[in-house]
């Protein structure tokens, strides 16, 4: 599932990444990583997620490459 489909505050685990996006990897977003959805901007705007102790904003198109499941 995509991150955007979950409720705010939901903790998620990354299953896989579509394609090889190095920048996601550098931020710590890789299979097995734990995330938490913090905010979702309207009109298909950016998502803000927590990775480790850092907040990261993702554009919708790159966020949709991250497939996650609820934890």
């Amino acid at each position: 599932m995509n991150i955007a489909q979950f409720e705010i505050g939901q903790k998620l685990k990354v299953l896989k990444i579509d394609g090889a996006e190095r920048r996601l990897f550098e931020m710590g977003i890789m299979p097995g990583a734990e995330l938490q959805l913090i905010a979702r901007h309207p009109f298909k705007g950016p998502l803000v997620i927590k990775v480790g102790n850092a907040d990261v904003a993702l554009g919708r198109s790159i966020a949709n490459k991250v497939k996650v499941e609820a934890v």
Binding site: R23, L24, M27, P46, V48, A54, D55, V56, A57, L58, G59, S61, I62
Partner: peptide, 10 residues
């Protein structure tokens, strides 16, 4: 480049 990733510092 319309895909972006940004760290939001505290």
């Amino acid at each position: 480049e319309n895909e972006f990733i940004y760290e939001l510092p505290p």
